[in-house]
Design a protein around this nucleic acid. Sequence first.
DNA 1: TGAAAACCAAGTAAAGAAGTTGGAAATTAT
DNA 2: ATAATTTCCAACTTCTTTACTTGGTTTTCA
Lengths: 169, 169
Amino acid sequence: MRLTTKGRYAVTAMLDLALQEGKRPVTLQDIAMNQEISLSYLEQLFAKLRAAGLVKGMRGPGGGYRLAQKMGDISIASVIAAVDEKADMTRCGGEANCLDGEKCLTHELWMELSDKIYEFLNGITLGELVRRPEVIEVAERQEAVRQGLRSGRLKTVIVEADSLIGGAK
Amino acid sequence: MRLTTKGRYAVTAMLDLALQEGKRPVTLQDIAMNQEISLSYLEQLFAKLRAAGLVKGMRGPGGGYRLAQKMGDISIASVIAAVDEKADMTRCGGEANCLDGEKCLTHELWMELSDKIYEFLNGITLGELVRRPEVIEVAERQEAVRQGLRSGRLKTVIVEADSLIGGAK
DNA sequence: TGAAAACCAAGTAAAGAAGTTGGAAATTAT
DNA sequence: ATAATTTCCAACTTCTTTACTTGGTTTTCA
């Protein structure tokens, strides 16, 4: 289980998806604005999430993404594994050939740590996360911003601010 | 607590040092050969380990490095922290300003995971590792190679093999 | 005095992360 | 039908970090 910002982006986006479950599909555009991740980077991540069978995309206006499984069945570990294919924490990637075909001195230590991390992340699902108070709190704040954007008022402010500063990213 | 190959190199080298404790100082040349890490990369890592007060260097012939503290007092976490200064697992590095000065959706999750990893690595010391059977086993195999190199026989073989293949790295 | 080592600084190469660009295909709303 | 909206796709760029390289200098021992 390798841990990078890439995996974090994926988990955050998936959690956003889980929070909107039941409403209409969520567009990447929407996630990009809320979580401040670039749209095309999200596209790349979602291509992998889709390949892993974690989400399904729907094209056209009103389209977007939905979870492909029940949120209680999607573990954080599976999300991270989906986007960052090479999950080798050790020099050898699990095989014990780190050093001249033999185990290196610290092989067991990293294996043990990998197991611990996997155990932790595999034990938590999106379903569990959406029920956490602190997640709900942040989600509500973000929902308010989303409403503002949709109504057009905040969007105008942002566009104006961007043109003053020198363009959005 | 960020986890990279850099930290792993440092821990492996430190463990090598711990295993030789009591004998004469260990040269980086020696570690480089045994653990297959480039000498100058090791120099850079040891500059940081020295700055962190984990090792002390002795110059001149017969010199090398020794642990600066009792091996039972050196945790794996402290070794990793020494070489990989920016220990930010989260987008915000512990501060809760990951998103527009506010906590992002998954802030608590990563903090929790960071704590777990730190707890694990902080609970293990070099002193503990050198007593583990699998470490002792690997160390003994490496010691045999070291003896062979010192006696000159294996070294000759390696040099010959290298010139056949096209040079060492 | 010479060799062996730590020490130091600057650079390079390769990889991966993150983002960019410019589309094509599907689907819905007008 | 057509236009807008969205996923889907591929290639490329930029930035950062890792890992390694080069070419020294100082210290210390034999």
